[in-house]
């Protein structure tokens, strides 16, 4: 199959970016989207041209490294997957695809499609953990966690930190990412001790990084490859208000 690719090219964080168009022929339907970019890059490099820089690593949908806007949608036209899990069978012969980096104030572009998501690390560093130093843990089965609670905590913990939620939000909000960690830990008995302090610190850091506010459009949930629910945002707000009322 043949595809026309309109790809965002930007030499550096400070350079002016622009779209460049490339045409690729003899593509196979079974190829992954990133393998198509590999083919393009091999062609560019062989000609001595600069390859398209894009974030990717595990290529099985779990590391959260890859992510781009494809025809205006985070991770492309199929819901519930990351960019690396997208295959060319989702497109038609002759299609034109517009490929851009995830865009948000808190995710500056580094080069081409590669962005800086270190803001997420700083949000976690501000309080996204249980302070259980090595050696201090009690016997594992002394903390009973009912099956449904464990499953629900897992649903929140499944977030891969890709940033699709931020990229798709018209406000560039990190509410889904931040709330997923807050809820994961707040749902577990061992995470309750620090729950109030945690939510206050993490929300404060989220605001400091320049992420926008949540206005409940729920686009984040629709584009999340792991299906993380907006109910996590509700829980974050509940925990936050509780902390403000009762004191962190």
């Amino acid at each position: 199959m043949k595809l026309r690719l309109k790809i965002w090219r930007q030499d550096s964080a400070t350079a002016q970016g622009m779209f460049k168009t490339y045409t690729l022929d003899n593509l196979e339907k079974g190829m992954s989207f990133l393998e198509m970019l590999d083919v393009l890059n091999q062609q560019l490099v062989t000609k001595g041209e600069r390859p398209v820089v894009f974030d990717h690593d595990c290529r099985e949908g779990i590391c959260g490294t890859c992510g781009m806007m494809i025809n205006g949608r985070a991770h492309g036209p199929i819901g519930g997957i990351t960019t690396c899990q997208l295959h060319l069978r989702s497109f038609n012969d002759g299609d034109e695809l517009t490929i851009e980096p995830f865009r948000a104030k808190a995710f500056p572009v580094i080069k081409d499609l590669k962005i800086d998501r270190s803001a997420f690390d700083r949000i976690i560093a501000s309080g996204g953990y249980i302070s259980a130093s090595t050696g201090s843990a009690p016997e594992a089965n002394s903390i009973l966690i009912p099956h449904d609670v464990a499953e629900s905590a897992f649903d929140s913990a499944a977030c891969i930190g890709c940033g699709a939620c931020v990229a798709t939000c018209k406000n560039g909000s990190a509410a889904l990412f931040t709330s997923a960690k807050i809820s994961h830990l707040a749902k577990l008995p061992q995470g309750r001790a620090e729950a109030r302090a945690r939510v206050v610190k993490m929300v404060e850091q989220m605001d400091k990084e320049g992420f926008g506010h949540c206005t409940n459009t729920e686009a984040c949930e629709a584009e999340c490859p792991m299906g993380v629910s907006v109910l996590n945002i509700a829980q974050m707000n509940w925990e936050y208000n509780k902390a403000l009322l009762l004191g962190a």
């Binding site: 090595t134 843990a137 009690p138 594992a140 903390i143 464990a150 905590a153 994961h184 830990l185 995470g191």
Partner: peptide, 9 residues
């Protein structure tokens, strides 16, 4: 024990 204490579900 350590992983459970950290909140691994």
């Amino acid at each position: 024990d350590q992983a459970v204490a950290q909140g691994v579900p």
